[in-house]
């Protein structure tokens, strides 16, 4: 880095773009195909989805920061193990905090908090971004990607909870009179496979709005 560039603003346009591009064009789930593994099973209700989203944001941001700060001293051959250790430590912290402060949600998420370790978003961002960039941009990149992931999770959870059990955040939304007219909850929405179809619809919507994203 040259001396003149040293005083780059904390929120320069470039850094802002790091934060916002994962929300749309470079969304980790719909475009980069990262982190689908542990995501989809926690979206039956909104609350676990929000908690999961926040946990991932924390782990990606802090993990990106740590890896980026150490990037020059990690030997290339063992970098995967170093990355895994950093992730595992952060995930243990998140898991213990969840158990201490919201035990119910932690029970609901069951093994999926642990599976943040093998969430491809983390390894993907470490390899693609944090290993080659300074700590502050990496931190923003981590927050951005975590947010992009969290947003998809929450959207899917809203659809599933609204149509699957007629409520949002546990409060009844669909009035009782609807049920009297013969409306009933769509039991299929609770089932895991429907999540994939909802995500596919999000991808369909996003790609038909933005023709550049279409695969040939």
């Amino acid at each position: 880095m040259s001396k003149t560039k040293e005083r780059e603003l904390l929120f320069s346009p470039k850094n802002i773009r790091l934060l916002t591009s994962p929300l749309g064009k470079e969304n980790p789930i719909t475009m980069q195909v990262l982190g689908i593994c542990s995501a989809l099973a926690v979206t039956v209700q909104i609350k676990p989805a929000v908690v999961m989203g926040i946990s991932v944001i924390v782990v990606t941001a802090v993990g990106n920061l740590i890896i980026s700060a150490m990037r020059n001293s990690i030997p290339n051959r063992i970098r995967i193990i170093v990355q895994l250790v950093v992730i595992a430590t952060l995930v243990i912290l998140v898991d213990q905090v969840l158990r201490a402060f919201s035990y119910e949600v932690s029970k609901q998420l069951s093994v999926f908090v642990g599976l943040i370790i093998t969430n491809c978003i983390l390894m993907g961002r470490f390899e693609a971004f944090a290993m080659a960039n300074k700590p502050w941009p990496s931190f923003l990149d981590g927050i951005g990607n975590g947010l992009g992931y969290g947003i998809i999770l929450v959207v899917v959870a809203v659809v599933r909870e609204l149509f699957g059990s007629g409520s949002l955040m546990g409060y009844k939304i669909i009035p009782e009179s609807f049920y009297n007219f013969g409306y009933s909850n769509n039991g299929l929405m609770i089932m895991p496979p429907l999540t994939l179809i909802i995500v596919a619809s999000i991808i369909w919507f996003q790609r038909s709005r933005d023709k550049d994203l279409i695969e040939k």
């Binding site: 496979p193 994939l196 596919a200 369909w204 790609r207 695969e215 040939k216």
Partner: peptide
């Protein structure tokens, strides 16, 4: 066109899951 690649794979996986 917008479903090509990733989208259709998701849908197929969903149907197989059902």
């Amino acid at each position: 066109a917008p479903l090509r690649g990733l989208g259709i794979t998701f849908i197929i996986t969903g149907l197989m899951g059902i």
